[in-house]
């Protein structure tokens, strides 16, 4: 809705007509069917194919499918298979390290958290990849995303003395690979692997 061009009423009218009522429903039908199929498959796996579970399953699938698809309202997105293959080992490695660090901090009575809020300028383009990155930040060592801002992301860091920038730069690159996107040129970590 934000993309309407206010000083060109012709375009605005066309878009309004295109996205209204029946038209929109019909245009959305293939995507809607795909969502119903995927969600029904998930339900089927989770319930082990139990017939009586569909009493709840059918309404749940239909309601979920009618909502806008995941990763915010940022429009279309696609994933790259090569990007996924590069992303998964990095994710598993950082998640293990993150869990281990927080476990040691929790269990060792001599250690204490020393948190700080920092801003991290994102180089990913606005949209689904940023939302994905914000979620990912919660699963890697020492970082918790608190707010997406216009320029980047606000992050709660568990131990102020440990630099998280390098990890975030590498992860951002992996997320860009995953979504088949280019990173904007920026000050941090252009030469990172």
């Amino acid at each position: 809705m934000l993309h309407f061009i206010a000083f060109e009423p012709g375009i605005e009218m066309t878009r309004l007509v295109d996205t209204s009522g029946m038209h929109r429903f019909i245009a959305d039908l293939p995507a809607l069917s795909a969502r119903v199929a995927v969600l029904a498959a998930i339900w089927w796996v989770l319930t082990g194919g139990e017939t009586s579970s569909w009493d709840w399953g059918v309404p749940a699938v239909l309601v979920a499918a009618s909502l806008r698809p995941g990763l915010g309202s940022g429009g279309a997105w696609r994933l790259s298979l090569m990007g996924l293959l590069r992303f998964l080992p990095a994710f598993v490695w950082y998640n293990m390290r993150g869990a281990l660090e927080v476990a040691i901090l929790a269990l060792d009575p001599r250690r204490h958290p020393d948190p700080v809020l920092i801003g991290y300028p994102l180089r990913l383009p606005p949209g689904p990849a940023r939302v994905f990155m914000a979620n990912l930040i919660n699963l890697v060592p020492g970082t918790l995303s608190t707010r997406l801002t216009v320029r980047g992301i606000e992050i709660h860091v568990l131990t102020a003395s440990v630099s998280v920038t390098r990890t975030l730069t590498i992860l951002e690159r992996r997320v860009a690979d995953l979504f088949a996107l280019q990173l904007a040129p920026g000050a941090v970590g252009d030469s990172q692997p």
Binding site: E101, V102, A103, N138, L144, T146, H156
Partner: peptide
């Protein structure tokens, strides 16, 4: 905030 760190990483 610090408690969320513990849960989100260790529990995953």
């Amino acid at each position: 905030f610090t408690r969320l760190h513990a849960l989100s990483k260790a529990d995953t």
